[in-house]
Design a protein around this nucleic acid. Structure first.
Length: 554
RNA sequence: UGGGGCGUGGCCAAGCGGUUAAGGCAACGGGUUUUGAUCCCGUCAUCGGAGGUUCGAUCCCUCCCGCCCCAGCCA
C-alpha cells in the first residue's frame, strides 16, 4: 500500500479539522523523552509519529527533554537520545529543548497560582497525603493547609526554593477538588523538594516541578499545537487542561493520546531495560539483544526498516500487542533490498579438489546483489581448496534430491557464483569425524548451465581457503522465551532465554569482509543478514541481524 | 468498587447507516529462481454478547461481558 491510499489516523483527522477551522495555522509537535534511559523501539513509534506529522504538514517537531527529576536523569542519556533520534533520520531546529530551560517561568506561574488562591503549600507528609487522597471509590479529605493565606504559601514556597525546608516536609499543591472522581484532580503536587543538583541547572534549584505542572506549560511555551502522548496519560488530560485554563499561557496546546507500541517476546519498559543493564543480564544498553535503538543499530537493523515498521503501525486508541514477526518482516524487507551479498561459512568443512588444473588461482566474479545490477560485483579467489558448511554435506547417498539440496557423495552441487562440483570421497579423523571432502569440479560451469547429464542438487555457499578471513559470528535469539515477559512484573527475569546469544568462532569469511565496518549491512548468502560488531578488535566479529526466512520443512 | 479508555480473522488493523467487511504480518497451497532467500499467483472473517431504532447496523441507542489505565512528593 502506498502512502497515498494509507488511511489517515485519528490524529491526522483532528489536525485536518483544526487546520480547516482555523484553530491552528501551523502544526507543532514534540517528542519529549525523559533522559533517564535509552530510547527503545516503543519510542521509535512516537518519534516517527511526531516528526512524521510535522513533516507531512510542513510544521515543526521539537526534541524536548522532560528533565524535571534530577534523581533519575543523566547527561549521558541526553547524549544517547540525541544520537539515536538523529540516527533514525530526524532532525529539529536549533538546540534541543529542555524542560529545565523553563524552570524560572514555571516558578513564576506557581506564584501566580498561589496569588490567585489556586495553589497552596501543604505540609502533609507523603504518608498523610496518601491517606487524605481517598481511594477510587471514596472522596479525599481536604488538607488542613488548604486554606492558609496566600502570603503564607508564598513565603513557604520561597523557603522551599532556597533550600530552607527539608525534603518531604512540604509540597506545593494545586487547589482543585479533593472529591473529584478523577484522582489526578485531587489537589495534585506541583512542586516537590529535591535538594539535588540538576545536570543542567546545577544547584540552582532545591525544588523541581512535577510532570503535570511542567508538561503542558512546556508545550505552551514552545507553541506546540498537538501534544501527543500515550494512553496512560489520558486521565491526566483534565489536569493538563486545568493549567491551560488557569495560567496566562502564550498558547493553548491540546493533548491527544494513542496506544503505545508493545511487541511480544519483548520488554519496552525503561525501568526493566535498565534493570537488565544494571544487573548485567546483557552487556549494556546497546547489547544487540536489546530492543533499544542503540541495540538494534548494533545488531544491524537499519534505521529505514525501523521507520517502515513504525509507519505500518496503527495510530489508534487500542492497546494491542504486535507480533515481533511483523517487525522482523520489515527488517528483512529493507535489508533484502539494500544489503550486499557476501559469503561466510560458519562451520567450515574443507573441500579439496583433485582436478583443479590451474596453476594460478581462478578469479570468480560474483554479483553483489542478485536483482540489482547497480550494486556491482566483486572478484573472489577460487583455488584448489575451499570451505563449505558442515551442514551442507552428507555421506548419506540415500537422501532424496528434493529433501537434501546440498552436497552428497557421488552427486553434484553448484557453488554459489562458481563451479559445479562433485563429492568423491571423505577423509575422517581417528574419532570418525569427517574432516575433509575430496571432490572434483565440472569444468566450464561458472556462469554456465550444467552440461548434459549433470544436475546439481542445489546451490551452496563456499569460501576460498587461500583468501579466507577468520572471524567469529554472534547468533542471537529472542531475549525472552515467553510471549509476554512483562506479565507478572517481578518475574520477567525468569523468562530470560538462556540461549539468546550463541558465539560461533572459527568461521571463514570471504576476503572482502575483512574491510567491512560496523553499520555496513551484508547478507551472508543462505544464512542471513549480518553487520560488523562495534567492539571487535583483532579478527572480525559479525552480528547476525536476522536469519533468512526458512520455509522448508526438514 | 468511582472515573477514563478499548473490544473487527492467529497478530496489527481499515471501516464514520446501504461495501463482494480494505491492507499488512503469520499460516497454508502453487509457479519462477545459480540464495530451500527474493519475486509472483492463490486460499484464509460477518464484526465481544443480548436486545432495540431503522426499509437497511460493524457503524446509532440500551444493558451485559471482557481487557487496559488512574489512589508516586515517577514520567
Amino acid at each position: 500500500m502506498t502512502d497515498i491510499d494509507k488511511p489517515i489516523n485519528f490524529i491526522q483527522q483532528i489536525i485536518n479539522a483544526d487546520l480547516e477551522s482555523g484553530r491552528v495555522t501551523d502544526v507543532v509537535t514534540r517528542f519529549p523523552p525523559e533522559p533517564n534511559g535509552y530510547l527503545h523501539i516503543g519510542h521509535a513509534k512516537s518519534i516517527c509519529l511526531n516528526f512524521g506529522l510535522a513533516s507531512q504538514y510542513n510544521g515543526q517537531c521539537n526534541l524536548r527533554f522532560d528533565d524535571t527529576n534530577p534523581e533519575k536523569e543523566d547527561q549521558a542519556f541526553v547524549d544517547a537520545i540525541i544520537k539515536d533520534v538523529r540516527w533514525l533520520g530526524y532532525d529539529w531546529q536549533g538546540e534541543p529543548c529542555y524542560a529545565s530551560n523553563y524552570f524560572d517561568q514555571l516558578y513564576l506561574w506557581a506564584v501566580t497560582l498561589i496569588k490567585e488562591n489556586r495553589a497552596y503549600v501543604c505540609e502533609l507528609d507523603a504518608q498523610q497525603m496518601r491517606e487524605f487522597r481517598g481511594t477510587l471509590t471514596e472522596a479525599g479529605v481536604n488538607s488542613p493547609f488548604r486554606d492558609r493565606p496566600a502570603e503564607e504559601s508564598l513565603a513557604l514556597l520561597e523557603k522551599m526554593r532556597i533550600g530552607l525546608a527539608d525534603e518531604g516536609s512540604m509540597t506545593l499543591r494545586a487547589k482543585i477538588d479533593m472529591a473529584s472522581a478523577n484522582i489526578n484532580l485531587r489537589d495534585p503536587v506541583l512542586y516537590r523538594i529535591k535538594k539535588m543538583a540538576h545536570q543542567r541547572t546545577g544547584d540552582k534549584w532545591n525544588i523541581y516541578p512535577s510532570y503535570d505542572f511542567a508538561h503542558g506549560q512546556e508545550d505552551a511555551i514552545e507553541g506546540v499545537t498537538h501534544s501527543i502522548c500515550t494512553l496512560e496519560f489520558a486521565a491526566n488530560r483534565p489536569l493538563y487542561e486545568w493549567f491551560t485554563a488557569n495560567l496566562p499561557l502564550p498558547s493553548i496546546p491540546r493533548q491527544y493520546e494513542f496506544g503505545r507500541l508493545k511487541l511480544n517476546y519483548t520488554i519496552t519498559s525503561k525501568r526493566k531495560l535498565k534493570q537488565l543493564v544494571d544487573e548485567k543480564h546483557v552487556s549494556g544498553w546497546d547489547d544487540p539483544r536489546m530492543p533499544t535503538i542503540s541495540g538494534l543499530r548494533r545488531r544491524g537493523v537499519s534505521a529505514r526498516s525501523i521507520r517502515n515498521f513504525c509507519d505500518s503501525l496503527a495510530v489508534a486508541k487500542t492497546d494491542g500487542i504486535v507480533d515481533v514477526a511483523q517487525f522482523e518482516h520489515f527488517v528483512r524487507d529493507d535489508l533484502n533490498i539494500s544489503a550486499k551479498r557476501a559469503m561466510c561459512v560458519l562451520k567450515p568443512l574443507l573441500v579439496t579438489l583433485t582436478n583443479f588444473s590451474g596453476q594460478e588461482q581462478v578469479k570468480i566474479e560474483a554479483k553483489n546483489h542478485p536483482n540489482r545490477d547497480d550494486m556491482g560485483s566483486r572478484v573472489i579467489n577460487f583455488s584448489e581448496q575451499f570451505y563449505i558448511d558442515q551442514a551442507d554435506f552428507s555421506e548419506d547417498t540415500s537422501l532424496s534430491r528434493k529433501k537434501f539440496k546440498r552436497l552428497v557423495i557421488g552427486d553434484y552441487v553448484r557453488l554459489r557464483s562458481a563451479f559445479i562440483v562433485r563429492a568423491d570421497d571423505v577423509v575422517k579423523n581417528a574419532a570418525g569425524d569427517i574432516v575433509e571432502v575430496i571432490a572434483s569440479l565440472v569444468p566450464n560451469t561458472v556462469g554456465q548451465d550444467a552440461p548434459e547429464g549433470i544436475k546439481a542438487r542445489g546451490v551452496i555457499h563456499w569460501v576460498d581457503a587461500v583468501s579466507a578471513v577468520d572471524c567469529a559470528v554472534n547468533i542471537y535469539d529472542r531475549l525472552f522465551n515467553q510471549a509476554d515477559p512483562d506479565q507478572g512484573d517481578q518475574h520477567f527475569l525468569e523468562h530470560l532465554n538462556p540461549d539468546s546469544l550463541k558465539v560461533v568462532t572459527g568461521c571463514k569469511a570471504e576476503a572482502i569482509l575483512e574491510g567491512s565496518i560496523a553499520g555496513d549491512h551484508y547478507q551472508f548468502e543462505r544464512e542471513g543478514y549480518f553487520t560488523r560488531d562495534t567492539s571487535d578488535a583483532a579478527s572480525p566479529v559479525f552480528n547476525c541481524t536476522i536469519g533468512l526466512r526458512d520455509n522448508w520443512k526438514a
